[in-house]
Design a protein around this nucleic acid. Sequence first.
DNA 1: GCTACCCTACTCGGATATGGAATGTCCGAGTATGCTCGG
DNA 2: CCGAGCATACTCGGACATTCCATATCCGAGTAGGGTAGC
Lengths: 157, 157
Amino acid sequence: MGRGVEWAVHSCVNMAWTPPGEPVNSARLAEFYKLPAAYLNKQFQSLVRAGVLESVSGPHGGFLLARRPENISVLDIVLALEGQDPAFRCEAILGNVPDPVRQDNFARTCLISQTMRQAELAWRQALARQSIAGIADSMERRFPSDKGKVLDYLAAE
Amino acid sequence: MGRGVEWAVHSCVNMAWTPPGEPVNSARLAEFYKLPAAYLNKQFQSLVRAGVLESVSGPHGGFLLARRPENISVLDIVLALEGQDPAFRCEAILGNVPDPVRQDNFARTCLISQTMRQAELAWRQALARQSIAGIADSMERRFPSDKGKVLDYLAAE
DNA sequence: GCTACCCTACTCGGATATGGAATGTCCGAGTATGCTCGG
DNA sequence: CCGAGCATACTCGGACATTCCATATCCGAGTAGGGTAGC
């Protein structure tokens, strides 16, 4: 899994903390986390294409959540950055056996593929249950000072 | 996820079908599935290191299951090939914030990391539930001719 | 005829190339801000 | 003094390098089996 996922989730939590409608400066955020600014920007672009974020150009521009934080799940972010395809792709190698008797939609009947899909489904469901709003709330409750620190840093200068 | 996983699971199912104690020729298996022989061999080596398979050198050599098929899960194979580390590694970027107040075991308290670990745990549990023996049985029940075809092909020549 | 030895062929094992994706960087397009100049 | 126009700085967006890992391949180490020579 790409590193950008962690960055993106943290960033989205921070965007959930900032007042709605107010963009967050990407470079400032990267500076806060000591991350490569241009690369973080690249990740955000993927999120914009996926409809998770919106972008504002020009001075005082930046990125902001495209939906309410309650309606953005961790899964949305992961899929936006890692791609929609499941991690396990069934090549249906049994279709390559000398006797190619049932090549058609083998993936549906392949028990191995079924197992993998079932596992990935459980994984996605676990990620879909967690929303950005939920993480933001829990984090605020557990580390009350964080929200203020972030907002101060982003507002300063 | 690497392609070798699918090959390995199929191969282990075939090894569960062959009489216990009898090695399976790696090159022959690769030929059956139209796979690159040397690369399949490499995957098997990882499985040997992980204690899933055993190897026999020399003529009539090959690979065989190191344990009974009931005691080999799909998860064992996946972890052997993909590595034990979880897909999501928490870099604890919050430890990089200007005020590094709690760098120690941040991963344990990081809510994002918790979410990811929980999802991966669900994934692993789903894979751990499926044993090679179970897949072999189900496959034999659904595609009764497969077992015979495989054994014939491996025995011929 | 039997046995011990050697030779060969075969298979695993690790070291070695290659390609493509993830990672990281840079410059152009577009826009809001603030200044300037004219009315 | 006020407003329109313009220059400017700032930010996103996509195009361009680089690094690393999955993929693929090859040759050496070790072993079982058979053949051969000697007893």
